[in-house]
């Protein structure tokens, strides 16, 4: 009798486990379904408006003539400033923290500071850029102001990625280099950095793809929404892809949604390519040690 009661009790528990498992699976699927809906929606709305002309045209008041060219070139120009600036600053910061810094209060402060900067909302970086780059340094609403703001925004991400990459270089090969009479910098330059480069690149590319998709801080530092030229100097006016998408989305007429969707497709394809490159680098070079 007792055995029977216990048995049915166990059966109930096992059932519960199975039910709960399906709840977990379904909840996880909700997230995946959402992603599928989002991509499906964007594709169904935007594909019809994709054309070579869409990539070649400047923004226009008419749907048929509107294009993403200024945005694509602007994003490209911005990232070609942001990438070197943030990488040099980020990698150097990481090298300092991992290789040179003593474990003192100042070092700990920098570490905590980097961690906290990564959590500051992007729009606050926009305010920083507005005060310093736009007004104080009198750059105005220019490409360089936007690109520098973006560099500071992605800096903490790159520092953290570079720190991890540098830390993963085994100490044995550093010792081997130092044991041959190499100086500290020779060891870093010839051994540590080459070994850490794949990790640094992977992390940096992911950070740059964040920069390419970022809109809010650029609104604050005055990226244009409609512009009929591509940036030809650091002090040009500029727009970027997400800015154009934003301005199309914000228009009341429904047709512009389709143009925005077409722009989103282009943006997502570019981000997808960047992520693919990052994953490729990671897979090609990982587990070398």
């Amino acid at each position: 009798m007792n055995d029977k009661v216990n048995y049915s009790h166990i059966k109930g528990r096992v059932m519960k486990n199975a039910v709960v498992k399906w709840i977990f699976i379904m909840a996880t699927s909700v997230a995946l379904i959402f992603l599928a809906l989002l991509i499906g929606r964007v594709l169904s709305q935007g594909v019809g408006y994709l054309s070579i002309d869409f990539l070649k045209n400047y923004p226009a008041p008419y749907i048929e003539e509107a294009g993403l060219f200024a945005g694509i070139m602007g994003s490209l120009a911005m990232i070609s400033i942001t990438a070197p600036v943030s990488m040099i600053l980020g990698v150097c910061t990481a090298l300092y923290l991992e290789e040179y810094a003593r474990d003192n209060k100042f070092t700990r402060f920098i570490r905590v500071n980097v961690q906290n900067l990564a959590g500051v909302p992007s729009i606050v970086f926009g305010l920083l850029g507005l005060t310093f780059f736009v007004y104080l340094f009198e750059m105005g609403y220019t490409l360089i102001a936007g690109a520098l703001t973006m560099s500071l925004l992605v800096l903490p991400i790159i520092v953290v990625a570079a720190q991890e990459a540098i830390r993963s270089v085994p100490s044995e090969i550093r010792e081997a280099s130092i044991g041959m009479g190499a100086t500290k910098w020779q060891t870093i330059w010839r051994i540590v950095l080459p070994a850490a480069i794949p990790g640094i690149l992977t992390g940096s590319i992911l950070a740059f793809s964040r920069a390419i998709g970022e809109t809010a801080p650029l609104i604050i530092v005055g990226a244009a929404t409609a512009i009929y030229s591509i940036p030809d100097s650091l002090f040009s006016k500029y727009t970027v892809m997400p800015m154009q998408i934003y301005s199309w989305t914000a228009r009341p007429q429904e047709e512009w949604q389709y143009v925005a969707a077409a722009g989103i497709i282009v943006l997502l394809i570019i981000l997808l390519c960047m992520n693919a490159i990052a994953v490729w680098i990671r897979n090609k070079f990982q587990k070398r040690f």
Binding site: E172, I173, A176, P194
Partner: peptide, 8 residues
């Protein structure tokens, strides 16, 4: 060294 540690 103890473990072979060639450079990559």
């Amino acid at each position: 060294f103890q473990k072979p540690n060639p450079f990559p």
